[in-house]
Amino acid sequence: MTADDAAPGDTRGPEILLCPDSFKGTFAAREVAAALARGVHEAGGRPVVLPLADGGEGTAQALLDAVGGVWLEVTATGPLGEPVPARLALLTDGRTAVVDVAAASGLPLVAREDRDAERATSYGTGELIAQAAREGARTVYVACGGSATTDGGHGAVQAVHAGGGLRGARLVVLSDVTTPFEEAATVFGPQKGAAPDAVERLTDHLHRLAAGFPRDPRGLPRSGAAGGLAGGLWAFFDAELTSGIDAVMDAVGFDDASRRAAVVVTGEGRLDDQSMRGKVVSGVVRRAVGRPVYVCAGQVALPEHAVREAGLRAALVTPTLEDLVRAGAHITRMHVGRHGDGTEQGAAAR
């Protein structure tokens, strides 16, 4: 765990655990946490920084920030077959690697006008997995978020085989969705540029792939993540399919950190009715037992009663880094005791 703490032996103020997700498209999780930490420190608290991710884009960065390691820069095959610069994380234990599917097979790598869900391949993700195995990784986390593909993992499986196989490495596929393999095109295809007729063709293709796989992923929860990539890796390599947020929280030692903290602060770009369904906020609320949990978000689309019902003490609207600094200070002062009655105060609180 990395921490932005007060000096060793400093016992002033409460310990505040800062464990946000990224504000996608705006701030990385570590930027959000750093801004909150400034406010906590200024208000007399002891910030502990522990950025999180839900198994989607940014998971490799979150784990690298939390436990240490290095980036391995490579050239991989992009979604439409072109070479793209990509990277994977090799964690400090030397035995664990993290591959973001978005690094080589991500939707942001394709211009909007060029998106082609039927053509897009996951081959580059397979190249990264094979590279991790060649580097000696014994466990490879594959974070399934932000993909451009709906190829059922066909490309990735080909690339792993071409790259020398897994060499005994274990695959753990992380996702925040429970969509089964055969529904991947219906659920995710439109956002990848697939028109209704293309969704139908892709669905037929997924069914044909599944029928020819070593084992059939249809009906298996989470197998539809990343356009069926999760199901392909499960079928060919016995990959474990699991909740992204829980795996990340386990890896970074969230439970121990939350037990030591007086207050827990999480965050994401938009707090809405999806936030409590496998996202970072839901995991933090579920596992920060007995601790008040606040959330900071660029947008808050939940009414106050829904925020409370979700188990959150309050939601604060924080679209800028300066707002995050102020929020960190505000939350800390509430628990340092400078606002006596402990009620939520300030225009930022919802």
Rank of each mutant, 00 (worst) to 15 (best):
A3G: 13
D5P: 00
A6L: 15
T11K: 13
L18G: 01
C19E: 04
D21R: 08
A28H: 12
V40M: 03
G44F: 03
R46D: 15
V49I: 13
P51T: 04
P51A: 04
A60L: 10
L64F: 05
A66V: 03
G69W: 01
G78M: 11
L80I: 07
E82D: 15
P85Q: 12
R87S: 13
L88G: 06
L90Y: 01
L90N: 03
A97H: 03
L107R: 06
V110T: 07
D114W: 11
D116F: 05
E118Q: 15
E118F: 06
A120H: 07
A120N: 09
G136R: 03
T150N: 15
D151S: 01
H161D: 14
R170E: 14
L171D: 14
E182K: 11
E183I: 00
A185E: 07
Q191K: 02
V199L: 09
E200Y: 12
L209K: 08
L209W: 11
L209F: 14
A210G: 07
P217V: 11
A225W: 02
A226W: 09
G227I: 13
G228M: 08
G228S: 06
A230H: 02
A230Q: 05
A230E: 02
G231T: 07
W234S: 03
W234E: 01
T242D: 10
G244M: 14
A247D: 11
R260P: 01
V265L: 09
V265Y: 03
T266H: 04
R277D: 05
V281H: 10
S282L: 01
V285L: 06
A297Q: 12
L302H: 10
P303N: 08
P303V: 05
L312S: 07
P319E: 09
T320M: 09
L321K: 13
H335I: 00
H339K: 00
R350K: 07
